[in-house]
Simulated assay, not measured.
Amino acid sequence: MSPNALIPSHRKPRRPSASSRALRAGVTGGFLTLAVTGATVPANAAEKPVSETQEMPTITTALATSAARSADTAEQVAFTYERQALQDSAFSQAAKAAEKHKAEAVKKAKAAAKKKAEEAREAKEAAQARASRSSERSTLSAPSSSTATGSTATLVAFLKAQLGKAYVLGSTGPSSYDCSGLTQAAFSQIGIDLPRVSQDQSTQGTQVGLDNLQVGDILYWGSAGSAYHVGVYVGGGKFIGAQNSSTGIVERPLDYDMPTGAVRVL
């Protein structure tokens, strides 16, 4: 027999390892593998754990739908919270505005009440003043000693004859007068010599109250000794005087310009 003759080996055929079979298998059971023909695995190479070769779970339609629903739910919850926050803010602002309007309304009401009270007080004071003037006029127009007789009649007649004449400062007649020039000229008709100016005339004779006037009493405006105007009481609650350059010599009721005081020289 030839030395090169094939001698059957007593060795068992070498079986491919599990890893080799897996590599040859191609795509098997959902795993992507590479087929390596004739590749051998080193003897010292250990097989990888199943966890390293196991495929990640495939995202199914149900899983995607569930995730989408979860996202929608989270979005809806966020929207609900945001809407609630906006509503709370709006309610807070409305409450503050209502409190502000209420405070303003209370303030206006108090101001209106105060104004009304002041108007009522002023009206009451005005009514009292009118009543007082009316009482004074009634007292001043009382008859008794207001009727002119004798020298007072002459005095009053002279004064009435001067009505309508002009007022001229510093004049003593006969065509024009100032206030003290008229009274001086009138009393000279009955023999009474008065000082020239109103300040001095206001201190002549006897001081009398306005509630006890008689015809012929000299009325003055201002204070005694420093009066700025004079006239003569002619009865019936009236006086005659040279008022000013606009009116001239006129007859007026006492409440036209209530005098300060009076003196009696008759």
Rank of each mutant, 00 (worst) to 15 (best):
R121D: 06
G26M: 07
A25W: 07
S141I: 08
E52A: 15
K102W: 10
T58L: 00
A22G: 00
I190Y: 01
K108L: 11
V265T: 14
E47M: 13
G236T: 06
A95L: 14
G164D: 05
Q243W: 13
K115Y: 07
W221S: 03
K114M: 07
Q201L: 06
V265N: 14
W221P: 01
T37W: 06
T152H: 15
I249L: 15
Q243N: 09
L140W: 09
A227V: 03
S145G: 15
P253G: 05
A113L: 13
F31L: 09
S175Y: 12
L163S: 14
S246R: 13
E251H: 04
M56R: 11
A25G: 05
A224T: 00
A22S: 00
A112R: 01
P3E: 10
K115A: 14
A126T: 09
R121P: 02
Y81V: 12
N244G: 02
T183I: 11
S171V: 01
A185D: 07
T28H: 13
S198E: 05
E75R: 08
V215A: 15
V106A: 14
K238E: 05
W221Y: 15
S138T: 12
K238F: 10
G26N: 07
L34S: 08
A46M: 09
T139P: 05
A68G: 09
A186R: 02
T154D: 11
A227Y: 08
S70M: 06
S246G: 10
E82I: 02
P259G: 08
